[in-house]
Nucleic acid binder design. Sequence first.
DNA 1: ATGTGTTCCTGTCCGC
DNA 2: TGCGGACAGGAACACA
Length: 283
Amino acid sequence: MPELPEVETVRRGLTATFVGGRILAAAAHRPNLRFPLPQSFAERLTGRRVLDLRRRAKYLLADLDSGETLVMHLGMSGSFRVEGEPVGEFHHPRGKPGTHDHVELAFEGGARVVYNDPRRFGFMDLIETQALERHPLFAALGVEPLGPDFHAAALASVLAGARTPLKAALLDQRRIAGLGNIYVCEALHGARLSPLRQAGGLKPAETRKLARAIVEVLQAAIEAGGSTLRDHRQTDGELGYFQHSFAVYDREGAGCGHPRCGGMIARTVQSGRSTFYCATCQR
DNA sequence: ATGTGTTCCTGTCCGC
DNA sequence: TGCGGACAGGAACACA
């Protein structure tokens, strides 16, 4: 599910509860998500204060006063919700957790944060904060598209020489980190570039258009609370609504929205995943 | 080194 | 209404 805008939306929604908050109790209702949860997961969270809640690519990072960081990835279907509950208690209506509620955190003051993930492609880990950047999960991640280091030259540099299709290159988290299937399709449409183009073959003007389109679509999506196809919820349960602004994603057969184009949105498959684009104006 | 296909898991939707 | 197949926001992994 969640790409950069959805994860950023979740980060903002959890900040009031997490940052400065103390975890009074933690519970894992199963030993694994996509991967096994780390040793003594609940114990290492219990009693900890959260110093900061950050995002890197599609990862949420909660820095703890123990020197460890709780790393959270939402996979395809992960979501968080915040509920008020009696302090330190996990009280379930029928005496057991809700369907696909896998991890719960009870905060001082009564807030209860629940991680739900039907497909269980998400995962959590506890990693020494000071060693995060060297950890295999993060060491190879590419440039942060909403960060200060992202501009046309940076994009040109990570695409240089790549003979893979533009679509695949933009999905590659080692080149640029945080884009997924939706926002790659949307950004390529915004830049009027074909997803089938060879990634290393863009002209400078095309690279500039693409860099701008990426930033614009991500910012607009964050403004809208992300996109809800099925699972994504903001932490208060509200839907995202950027899906109403899609130009191409899941819009096969619809008209292209670019002025005077008149083309029709097509769907094709690239490396096993749907690509939506306008073959008339995306060249 | 680089590229593509398969896999993990559950749920939903569509056609018959 | 039921059933099978396709498909879904990710990304590690195995292979050509």
